[in-house]
């Protein structure tokens, strides 16, 4: 890929072009809101140590209602506490780190596996396609959560296992999308031109085809990120997520909702956190799609 770039003087570096492309999102207010939410949570995750009023695992007044003062009177439990007296706000702030680490990582891994599979299936077709598509169909025929439960039940609950499970379950979906795009793009004349000058199959897939599929793939990645956030939350809710005591949004919901009879608001806050992040990704995807369809 690099040798394409060097021979001719370029006005713009690829990085600059990427940033410029990203700036197009300004034309869609939906996308801007989405981007805003994501940037907000990213900042929260980065500065969690500064922003959180309490250490996330520090016990205090149990099941304190939102707005009550801590035992020593030095702080306020803005969003209340859980049954061990840990501050919900601090745990949400620290929990964003887990989500924003594992969700992008898992999505990236799914693409890393799914893209080559989709390229090979769509470009080579024939037996390669049949075999790869069949494997994908088998995995996709599991209801997702059933698959997660089996995998986690087998290999145990941990951050890296979540990444493995998400990769295993999502890569076939990525493969299908890439395959569909490649089936369309492989009939373009510039691909034909590359074939007639004897380029290797992988070069054609990676240099001639893949860059032209980037638009729909970026949109899909955003949607998938949102879905992975939901998945991680759901696994946490079912007790199959990250092992305690580190804060995990889904796990917090499942703990706090048991005390809804005491105060139904306690469980609402982590739900808002997770829903807003998913919304951010979904809105960004919508905005990107809108902008890409404009020209």
């Amino acid at each position: 890929m690099t040798d394409q770039a060097v021979s001719v003087p370029r006005r713009e570096s690829p990085l600059l072009r990427f940033v410029k492309g990203l700036a197009l999102i300004r034309e869609s207010w939906v996308g801007m809101i989405g981007l805003g939410i994501i940037v907000f949570w990213s900042l929260v995750a980065i500065f969690a140590d500064i922003l959180a009023p309490f250490p996330p695992n520090q016990p205090g007044l149990p099941l304190a209602p939102p707005g009550s003062a801590s035992l020593d009177g030095l702080g306020v439990y803005w969003l209340g506490t859980d049954q061990l007296g840990r501050d919900t706000l601090s745990r949400i702030i620290h929990g964003s780190r887990q989500v924003l680490l594992y969700a992008p990582l898992a999505t990236f891994c799914a693409y890393f596996v799914g893209i080559p599979m989709g390229l090979a299936a769509g470009y080579r077709r024939g037996l390669t396609d049949d075999v790869l598509s069949f494997i994908a169909n088998v995995i996709l025929s599991f209801p997702v959560l059933v698959l997660y439960i089996i995998i986690i039940a087998t290999i145990g609950a941990s951050g890296s296992n979540i990444v493995i499970a998400v990769t295993f379950a999502s890569a076939p979906g990525v493969m299908r999308i890439v395959r569909g795009l490649v089936l369309d793009l492989r009939n373009r004349e510039y691909v034909f031109a590359a074939e007639t000058r004897g380029e290797s199959a992988w070069r054609i897939m990676l240099v001639e085809i893949l860059p032209n599929a980037r638009g729909p793939l970026i949109v899909d990645a955003c949607l998938r990120l949102g879905y992975v956030v939901i998945t991680i939350g759901t696994l946490g809710f079912l007790g199959l997520g990250l092992p305690p005591p580190d804060p995990d949004w889904g796990g917090m919901v499942s703990e706090l909702r048991q005390f809804a009879i005491v105060d139904p608001m306690l469980a609402v806050f982590p739900c808002i956190a997770i829903s807003s992040l998913v919304l951010g990704f979904n809105l960004l995807a919508d905005g990107l799609r809108e902008v890409s369809l404009r020209d």
Binding site: Q4, S7, R10, E189, Y190, N212
Partner: peptide
């Protein structure tokens, strides 16, 4: 509309050949 790869510059495509 199909003969050149939209992702690469004209120069890069000629240079490759």
């Amino acid at each position: 509309f199909d003969t050149l790869n939209p992702s690469h510059t004209v120069g890069a495509q000629l240079a490759r050949v």
